[in-house]
Design a protein around this nucleic acid. Structure first.
Length: 268
DNA sequence: CGCTAGTCCTGTCTGC
DNA sequence: TGCAGACAGGACTAGC
């Protein structure tokens, strides 16, 4: 499930295609398109000016006519292939053919993701919270956000309107690193806990990026290669295994409808 | 406004 | 071995 580190990894990989011209665009599934400010045909002849990321969204900026925004949802992939690699791949919904014999494939079996052909992407992100790796995400900001919410701290951290880019894996890992129980009411966290959590969120995301993302199941990078961070997870997907800190069996519960992994002994 | 529950989707896993 | 059902969850919506 591509979260901030996975989308950032894909973005960095996509920079290999920066400046390349689009020679053809195939939208193979209409219902994957969430915004149609312009038709796919309008992409032909444009070039990929730059690649940006906002939260879990990847933005391909065009030299004119706006941009292409992609969200990988749960199972989405976006990667480059040589043009001659033409074996029939399942669940490919969008293909950008580029000059120089390259093509970019958007592939998403579960179709929780989507694509936007936007004249201006700013409106898409108007309500989105700050980037957790940018300077405006401070411990003070986190404290203010948590103070006005009574929900479980994990549920609050997953709210994209409060913090952009956190998903189920990195939230569980950050709460473990900070020694905070995922079910704690957000407003009940103490200032030292908030400081630890703030640091843990940034640390875990940076580690995830350094390891090119977590391939727990479906995720692949911009070259269709798995990431490495699944080998460094402490709690996610490890219910029943011994806690790496204290050795007690890790627990699993459901919070906000999501599988939640934690150590009942280390996370208070 | 805050919060919960329901919805979408299909590959993979579990139990009989 | 085969099949039915459970399970995974990001973002959005309705309803209280």
């Amino acid at each position: 499930m591509p979260e901030l580190p996975e989308v950032e990894t894909i973005r960095r990989n996509m920079l290999a295609h920066k400046g390349r011209r689009i020679v053809a665009a195939e939208l193979l599934r209409e219902d994957i398109l969430r915004c149609r400010d312009y038709e796919a045909q309008r992409l032909v002849g444009r070039s990929l000016k730059d690649f940006q990321r906002r939260g879990k969204f990847l933005i391909a900026e065009l030299d004119e006519a706006g941009c292409i925004v992609l969200h990988m949802g749960m199972s989405g992939r976006f990667y480059g292939l040589a043009e001659e690699a033409d074996q029939a791949l399942p669940h490919v919904h969008f293909i950008l053919h580029l000059e120089g014999g390259h093509k970019l494939l958007y592939q998403d079996p579960r179709r929780f993701g989507g694509i936007w052909f936007c004249a201006d992407a700013a409106a898409l992100f108007a309500k989105m919270g700050p980037e957790p790796l940018e300077k405006d995400f401070t411990a003070q900001y986190l404290a203010a956000v948590l103070a006005r919410r009574q929900s479980a701290v994990k549920v609050v951290l997953l709210d994209q309107q409060l913090i952009a880019g956190l998903g189920n894996i990195y939230v569980d890992e950050a709460l473990f690193a900070a020694g905070i129980h995922p079910q704690r009411p957000a407003a009940a966290l103490t200032p030292p806990e908030i400081k630890r959590l703030h640091k843990a969120i940034r640390q875990v995301l940076k580690q995830g990026i350094a390891m090119r993302g977590t391939s727990f199941r479906d995720y692949r990078d911009g070259f269709n290669r798995p990431g490495d961070f699944q080998n460094y997870l402490k709690v996610y997907g490890k219910a029943g295994a011994p806690c790496p800190r204290c050795g007690e069996p890790l627990q699993k519960m459901t919070l906000g409808g999501r599988g939640t992994h934690y150590c009942a002994n280390c996370q208070a």
